[in-house]
Design a protein around this nucleic acid. Sequence first.
RNA 1: GGCGGCGUAGCCAAGUGGAAAGGCAAGGGACUGCAAAUCCCUGAUUCAGCGGUUCGAAUCCGCUCGCCGCCUCCA
Length: 473
Amino acid sequence: MKLYNTLARKKEAFRPQEGKTVRMYVCGPTVYDHLHIGNLRPLIVFDALRKYMEAFKGWEVIYVQNVTDVDDKLIERSAETGDTVEEIAKRYTDTYFSLLKQLDVKEPTHSPRATEYIEGMIELIQTLIGKGYAYERDGDVYYRVSAFKDYGKLSGRRTEELKVGARIAASEKKENPLDFTLWKAAKPGEPKWESPWGEGRPGWHTECVVLSREFLGEMLDIHAGGNDLIFPHHENEIAQAEAATGKLFSRFWLHNGLLMVGEEEMHKSLGNFAYAYEVLQKFGPETVRYFYLARHYRKPLDYSEGGLEEANKALARVHTLIDEVEAELGETDGGPETPGPSAAGRAFIDSLGRFRERYISEMEDDLNTVGALAAIQELVAEANRFRSTAEGSDRLALKKALNLIGELGWPLGLFQRKKPAPKGLQDELIKLLIELRAELRAKKEFALADSIRDRLAKLGITLKDRPQGTIWT
RNA sequence: GGCGGCGUAGCCAAGUGGAAAGGCAAGGGACUGCAAAUCCCUGAUUCAGCGGUUCGAAUCCGCUCGCCGCCUCCA
């Protein structure tokens, strides 16, 4: 498949470096607050990529996503609330994982907490100092940007351009304003670990290098995150990893576009954000996923409730088909006496393969989920046409369409069928009411018939009269 | 100032050299006792504007206009 590689600035053919194993790392959250709705985009998009690779390419994806549980933001939060850094980290790590579950994001293979790998970070910093890529000043350690000749290769920046007029805070301790912090000496009351340079904590940029290497080795297949991380975060990761190992750090760098509100980026500091859990409460996880996947992942996406409502309607079109075919055909396979499909039935079944091919070619082209959804929508239209004309056992072919929708929807986290409700007394009672109502309708006693329909509707049961009979969902 | 990106129907949005996907909204029709759903039909002679390259351009090149992101923490 082809993926747009930020490092090459173009789409490139992707396959794992080794066999069928994909080593993939996605930058995770700093757990100082609930996620906002914009934070969900990489989680959903790269989850879809991972699941597509697993389901359609037959690759095994080792998916690593860090949890940053020590950071300036956590320390600030602790000072504001009086809770300890540990308490805050625990609280928001828990809400983070429950959010993933709710969104049907497959759990990462590994979700390392930064604080559990401090030792490895210290070792990396020592290696860098030993090779001349870092230096210590008063308990802080800085990376010597001038020592790494490829600095800027990901973001397309040159160090001589960066240093002029840079907004980087000048520090007398740094040799060069571009140098970034690898180890920060602890101030009183801050979380701290012992190190050769005294008590302190690692810098954020060091964390991802160590955590990825721990589980994925020295060369990753894919490193992904929001495009706001390209500089400086990912650039600084490359500088550390490649200086330490002399090897390419990641073969592919994937970056999603940001969520916009009006004409500007959604950001906590701008106060224009909505919390993810609030939006999920209002619209539900599947609608949120559809909303994101209906726009190509590299482009900016405008957030609006209108956009979510539209996604919800597009989604409903698919679910109507699924629910109604389920309601009509249920678990039946027609039994052994069922004749095979007619010519029309066979033509419909054959057409399904074309939608599958279209879906695959869209997904293979830099994860074009927008085109993939269009393929599914066209499949739904085709199935609806077939549904309005097919007769008898031919209608069983609709179950093949449902199976295909489920298969294609799996990587997207969409259109998964609900577990079949156990057949019970309720089922029988509803059938009884439907039969009674049919008799009333035959006698043109519509007022009573409508009353049955209305009262069932109040119980959450919708009746739909079809040429094949009444179905309920 | 440097780097990157965007501008496609009323709205959202794919497509990036060879007949303008899909969704939402709107109008007309079919089906229906009604309802809900579904189906059919109606939409861009055109892709911000202007030039150029090409047999052929929304797609490539140049210029202009409008907008956004990064260059400090950010997904």
